[in-house]
Design a protein around this nucleic acid. Structure first.
Lengths: 235, 235
DNA sequence: AAGTGGTCTAGACCACTTT
DNA sequence: AAGTGGTCTAGACCACTTC
């Protein structure tokens, strides 16, 4: 094993917290006390404590000390990629159509453009070996000399479609998950009964100045419409 | 302003990454070079770099150097608390009923208990000033001398209901979001048309040994069924 | 052999809180 | 005044990669 000292101290403290020996509100020993106890330097202790801080277990107040935090039970991590739908490993994409049109008012509003602004609309069907999984629509404002690479249209996820001169880190993303009434064309493409409601994952992308640069709507039907999120302090 | 040195260096590097001056795959200067350039010590430089690492911008390889990461575009943060439904600040809770029963097979399976195991079922209606928002059901296995505080039943979120002797950090949580066919009783409670489908947020809680300790299902109808998630490297 | 990051020491000064 | 965390210095040795 031979863990570094800071790792060892980190594990011990984390363990005490997970076992409930240290509870929210409790104060930790001071840096100097811990350094003495573990026969190490203050810096090494600080390394352990800063890791516990980063992982959301403790916080510190100058002149006072370190305290166990009240955990935030409402925070989850959600992994979403329309081309990599969780459980299904082998997800394929089939291009149904591409065109530049004036979309309806709701889409224009979300993209913060006027109604006469041209928008590239990309329609795709996502399917596995067992059949269709989802119907996918992208709306990308057609302007600013932002080229959309041909290859990307069929096989790329939205963030990669709108990849720009600037940094991929500068993109801000939002998801909104909701039910949409059945849509004749989509339900047909997904081999679903006409009246079946669809689970929509709507993905909005914004650039560095918070301008919308892309909107994606992925429609899931039946058993495929399960979006998962998780939260775990233990790992 | 008078920022500490490590903060200053962190901001400068983060800025270069966000502006695209440093792209994924690029290598950073070495710790020693940066320390010289900024007339500071290696430790101070390392502090800046470890912060960039923590925030997912860079990674390092011993003997090689620091590299800009390819950002993970599929990761989102989702905030969910059945009693604090995002936009609506004032959310009230009305207890509809509590009983100990044997729930159906699907619930038993999710709770990993046999079908004759008693389960506490808590039914609540969540509403704002403008009317009902959601219908909420909790299933809590009735055993192990886990007391459920009376006050908690009406006004607590699931993680607080199953608060235990052990630590609140030890709980593992999962969410699953999906559509469920309309339910006569629920739709009526939510003042919805009989046939309206419902958006379900299913919350599973596990203890330190990965044993299920609680299951919550929150049913949203119509306009209230919008679950949001976000991702932002810029903040 | 030289350079890189990973770990660690033994100090120092500061602003802050507590007594 | 004494103790706390926040910042910082100037070293050191190690394992690793590159040349």
């Amino acid at each position: 094993m031979n863990l570094p000292i800071y790792r060892h101290l980190f594990n011990q403290l984390k363990d005490k917290i997970l076992r409930g020996e240290l509870k929210p509100g409790d104060m930790l020993q001071s840096e100097n006390e811990l350094a003495q106890q573990y026969s190490t330097s203050r810096l090494t202790v600080r390394k352990s404590l800063s890791m516990l801080d980063n992982e959301g277990f403790i916080t510190s107040f100058p002149g006072k000390g370190y305290y166990i935090i009240e955990p935030d039970h409402s925070k989850y991590t959600l992994l979403f990629n329309e081309l990599n739908s969780g459980s299904k490993n082998n997800l394929y994409s089939k291009l149904l159509g591409v065109n530049a049109t004036n979309p309806d008012a709701a889409i224009c509003q979300k993209l913060q453009i006027s109604c006469d602004h041209k928008v590239v609309v990309i329609l795709r069907l996502l399917y596995s070996n067992e059949g269709p999984i989802a119907y996918d629509v992208k709306y990308i404002p057609y302007d600013r000399g932002r080229p959309i690479v041909e290859k990307a249209i069929e096989y790329a996820a939205l963030p990669d479609m709108v990849a720009k001169k600037s940094s991929p880190f500068a993109i801000k993303k939002e998801l909104c998950i909701y039910i949409e009434k059945s849509n004749q064309e989509i339900n047909k493409s997904l081999c679903l009964p006409e009246s079946e409601p669809l689970l929509v994952v709507e993905q909005s992308l914004y650039d560095y100045e918070n301008k919308p640069i892309g909107l994606g709507k992925t429609y899931y039907g039946g058993e495929h419409g399960k979006i998962r999120a998780y939260s775990n302090m233990r790992e």
